[in-house]
Structure formats: C-alpha cells, structure tokens
C-alpha cells in the first residue's frame, strides 16, 4: 500500500523527520506512537502533502506511484485520507456541499461521472449512522460550531464517505471523552477491510484498546526507534516515554 524509505523532512532549517522507514500493506493497521515533538504530526502532514515542509531525502511509494511527486489533492484522489488532529472550520459551506464537491472531484480524477444527488444523499444517510452523526450536522457548515467530539466524528464520517485506501488518523483521540472515543473507534473498525489500511497516530495507548493495531511503531526524534506488535503499546503505557528517551538519547 505505502512504502516509506529513509524519509527526511524539515521545516526551515530544522530537520524533523530523520530517516523514517515504514511499510504498510493492505488490510493492516499500524499505530505510530511517540512523545510530544517526536515528529508524529509532521509525518502525517508530509504524507498528505502540506507545503510547509521540505522533503530533503528519501522516497514514498503509494500504490506504485511516487507519492512525493503528487499534489496534495492528487494524493487525496489516489486514496490517501488524513483525519485531522484539528479539523478546520469552513463557514457558510455545508458539510454536504463540501463532501459532494470532494467526492465528485475524486470521481472525476478516476474518470467517473458525478454521483447522482439521490445516491449521494442515500450514502450520506447510510454513513452518518456509522459514527452516530446527527443528520443536522451534515447540513451545517463544515465543522463550524461543532464540539470537539463532533469534529472528530465528522472526520470519520468524511472518511466513510470518501472510502480511502489509506487512512491516517492524526491524534484522533485527543480531546475525546470515552463515549466519543468508542463511537469514533467503532466507526474506524467498521470501515476496515482487506483492501484498505490505517495508520493510527497517537500519544496514548487508550485508543488502541478500541482500534487494535497489527503493528506498533515508536517514533522518537524523527526516527522509528522500535517496532513490535500491539503489546509494545502496553509496554509503553506501563513504562512511559522516559524509558524510550533514556534508551535512545545516546544514539542521538
């Protein structure tokens, strides 16, 4: 699905990613954990194509294509979806209109016709149930006046609508209470299939109780310093990041 090799990225003079290697196959769930400032959000931003970052070295292949050559919108159209840590408000633009535009842009990219309004509305109805999203939210402006939990649920709702191949959830658990967390996680689990893959970026182990990863990677100072199965997350939870910091400080 996606293959990241020796990825280096910096913002200004500051190098943040310092050689990331990661291989994600269809049907897999990977968790990337790490302390604050380790480069988790930078990784998701670089993969999604945010222009604030300069990729200085390395390569990323996504479904056989050179991801770094693609514009942000083409990455999305190729099936890469980022659930934002801080979803953005777009006043005056209804969620429905936003999603319809997005969906049809993606369809056009693949040479498909616009989705008929009737089918689209049926899809909205169907997918909003998945994350228990009030149908009123679908017609309200994108994220405007949404609570923290509603914003995150809206991200997963969008993900359900756009059916990406690879979804990157950037700290989707931050700011969620336990009920919202369960709803969001249930939504993500239901969307899981053999054809798609998920990268869960999180600071805490908590979310991984609900979205069980196949692999856990620990990111520290711009590198993946440790990889393992889901037990690695539990170990991390028990010991805290200080252990990791101690262990890898010297290597820096």
């Amino acid at each position: 699905m996606i293959s990241i090799k020796n990825l280096h990225a910096s913002i200004g003079d500051k190098e943040i990613l310092r050689g990331i290697n990661l291989e994600v196959k269809a049907g897999e769930v990977h968790a990337i954990m790490g302390p604050n400032g380790s480069g988790k959000s930078t990784l998701s931003s670089v993969l999604a194509g945010r222009e604030d970052y300069d990729v200085t070295e390395g390569e990323v292949t996504f479904n056989g294509k050179d991801l770094l050559e693609l514009s942000a919108e083409d990455r999305a159209r190729e099936g890469l979806f980022l659930a934002f840590q801080y979803p953005v408000e777009i006043p005056g633009v209804s969620n429905i209109n936003f999603l319809r535009t997005a969906l049809n842009e993606i369809r056009a990219y693949h040479g498909q016709e616009e989705m008929p309004a009737k089918d689209f509305l049926a899809l909205v109805k169907d997918k909003s149930k998945l994350v228990e999203l009030d149908s009123k939210l679908a017609s309200r402006s994108v994220n405007e006046g949404f609570s923290g939990g509603e914003k995150k649920r809206n991200e997963i709702f969008q993900m359900a609508m756009l059916q990406p191949k690879l979804a990157i959830l950037d700290e989707t658990d931050s700011g969620l209470d336990i009920d919202a967390l369960r709803i969001v996680a249930t939504g993500v689990n239901k969307l899981k299939s053999k054809e798609n893959a998920t990268i869960v970026i999180t600071h805490y182990q908590r979310l991984l109780d609900y979205i069980v990863p196949d692999f856990v990677h620990i990111l520290y100072k711009g590198r993946i310093v440790k990889s393992g199965g889901k037990e690695l997350a539990l170990e991390l939870e028990a010991k805290g990041y200080d252990e990791i910091k101690k262990e890898f400080e010297i290597a820096d």
Binding site: A48, S71, E73, A76, G92, V93, F98, A102, E105
Partner: peptide, 23 residues
C-alpha cells in the same frame, strides 16, 4: 482551510470558490 480542502481532493481553484462563496 485550503489544505483541508485539498486533502479531500478539491483543488486550489475550487477550494477558493467554495470558501469565498461560503463566506
């Protein structure tokens, strides 16, 4: 806002149209 739109597959031109018309 623009990046958010792009990340959903909407290009710059359409995104500006969308945001401005919303405004």
């Amino acid at each position: 806002q623009l990046f958010y739109c792009k990340q959903r597959g909407i290009d710059n031109e359409k995104a500006i149209g969308l945001i401005v018309n919303g405004y």
